[in-house]
Amino acid sequence: MLSLNIQKKLKAYELDIKFEIDEEIAVLFGPSGAGKTTILNCIAGLTNPDSGTIILSEQTLFQSRMKPVAIQKRNIGYLFQDYALFPHMTVRKNIEYGMKEKELVDQLVDVVGIEKLLDRYPREISGGEKQRVALVRALATRPEALLLDEPFSSLDDQTKKECQDELMRLHDVWKIPIIMVTHDYEEAERLGDRILRIDQGKLI
């Protein structure tokens, strides 16, 4: 269970969001600048709300007037829009960075089908392959929640569908809260157990 009740003053408006998600995929949907990525960053600890609470699996990650839990102690996987792979590391080294157990990595690599990529570098693989590698790396830490910031936006239609299918298949096995940001309503309907519409920092 991920519980969120946060407020944060931004340049154009105040972010004021409250929701709870369980073992489901929740999609944050809305126009650019609506506050979707800021919500993900607050959950991950990359930025902090001005007030409110963030609770994951009974651990309070943020609460007003308390020191926030450090990013590395939040046990949250984050898949960035540009995948943020380390260019100087092979795919294998990228995945092993922060992993919890070798058996889990082997299982994920097998499920996603990237065995042949392990000794290549990010510059040597396609966008769809990078997306799969980044997803495996995010899950290799055995997170209690997964955040996805427009993870499929740069992929062609066929690769996008394949990666969406893999995400749903992994979620069926994993059963953790997943929050995904997208501008694509068709994608939101296909993947989301719930669609949370965000505009000007509010749920609508």
Results as ranks from 00 to 15, higher is better:
13 Y>C: 02
17 I>A: 03
18 K>L: 02
21 I>A: 06
26 A>D: 02
33 G>H: 12
33 G>F: 13
37 T>I: 06
37 T>E: 06
37 T>K: 14
37 T>V: 04
39 I>R: 14
40 L>T: 01
42 C>S: 09
43 I>D: 02
43 I>H: 08
44 A>D: 05
45 G>I: 09
47 T>Y: 11
50 D>G: 09
53 T>Y: 10
58 E>P: 02
59 Q>K: 08
63 Q>G: 01
63 Q>A: 01
63 Q>I: 02
64 S>Y: 04
67 K>I: 00
68 P>E: 00
79 L>M: 11
83 Y>R: 12
84 A>H: 10
85 L>F: 05
86 F>M: 10
86 F>E: 02
88 H>T: 05
91 V>Q: 07
91 V>W: 03
92 R>A: 07
93 K>R: 15
95 I>C: 09
96 E>D: 11
96 E>Y: 15
101 E>M: 13
111 V>N: 09
116 K>S: 03
119 D>W: 03
123 R>H: 01
124 E>I: 03
139 L>P: 10
140 A>K: 12
140 A>G: 10
145 A>H: 14
146 L>E: 03
149 D>F: 14
151 P>E: 04
155 L>F: 08
156 D>N: 15
158 Q>W: 13
163 C>R: 10
163 C>L: 12
167 L>C: 08
167 L>D: 01
176 I>C: 10
177 P>I: 00
178 I>C: 10
182 T>V: 12
183 H>L: 13
186 E>N: 14
193 D>P: 12
199 D>N: 14
203 L>T: 02
